[in-house]
Simulated scan of single mutants.
Amino acid sequence: MTTHRLAVVTAGLGRPSATRLLADRLTEATGRQLADGGRESAPMVIELRELATDIAAHLVTGFPAPALRDAIEAVGDADGVIAVTPVFAASYSGLFKSFFDLLDPDALTGTPVLIAATGGTARHSLALEHAMRPLFAYLHATVVPTAVFAAAEDWGTGADARTATLPARIDRAAAEFAALLPAGRPGRPTRQAETVVPFAEQLAALRPD
């Protein structure tokens, strides 16, 4: 049975988090779609709130902490990525953008990406199209046609014409995402082990003999 490696990147700040909840729903729906086709998924959830300090340090030092390095490598090695962010000021969160700024520009080339977002009202849903989709297009990813936005009312217990559509949108996006997932990425070069030269050795190399 083919197993697809999925990186699930969620930028929710709270706990519990509507952003994480949406990421979990999309991951579960993708798993069902793959199972229906005789495939399975191996998701790795990356909670950016737990990496916030490491991300900030990497931006100013250029050196990732081990946990952040593992997260970056997991995204680069994944067969597909589910990326979910809260919407602040009509765009993705700064934490979300900072993480993807750390990826190699070619890390997501050809990788299927399912984009999703959460926000207080449905008025923020355009952030998916004017912010998130261009970001992943710039990274040369293959972005799933259906993007999923969940407003606060979508999590209500009383279904109406709007809230009742969230499960259907999740299932549609998951089906499109599963259809794009390859058996693997044979054309991607093998990752080379990173060599870290101690700072003392770097200084010694600069000193004249």
Rank of each mutant, 00 (worst) to 15 (best):
S98E: 04
A74K: 10
T85H: 01
T109L: 15
A127T: 04
D70R: 15
T85Y: 07
S125A: 14
F100D: 05
R133V: 08
V84G: 02
A131K: 00
E73Y: 11
A71F: 05
I72W: 04
A71L: 13
H124K: 00
A127G: 15
S91L: 02
A137H: 10
L108A: 10
T118A: 12
I82Y: 08
D104S: 15
G120W: 04
F96L: 00
G119K: 07
L108Q: 07
D104G: 13
A65G: 10
H124F: 00
D79W: 03
L103F: 05
A122N: 05
S125R: 05
E73A: 15
A127H: 04
A131R: 00
F100L: 04
Y92E: 11
L95S: 02
L103M: 07
E73W: 11
A65Y: 02
A107V: 11
F96C: 01
G120K: 06
A65K: 03
T121G: 04
H130P: 01
M132H: 03
V113S: 04
A74I: 04
G119Y: 10
D77E: 13
A78R: 06
P86Y: 12
P134L: 01
R123N: 09
L126S: 12
I82D: 02
P86H: 12
P86A: 06
F88L: 05
G110M: 14
V81K: 00
Y92I: 01
L108D: 09
L95M: 12
L128Y: 11
L103T: 04
G94N: 12
A89W: 11
S98T: 08
D70Y: 04
A117H: 10
L103V: 11
L103D: 07
G110F: 13
L128F: 11
G119M: 09
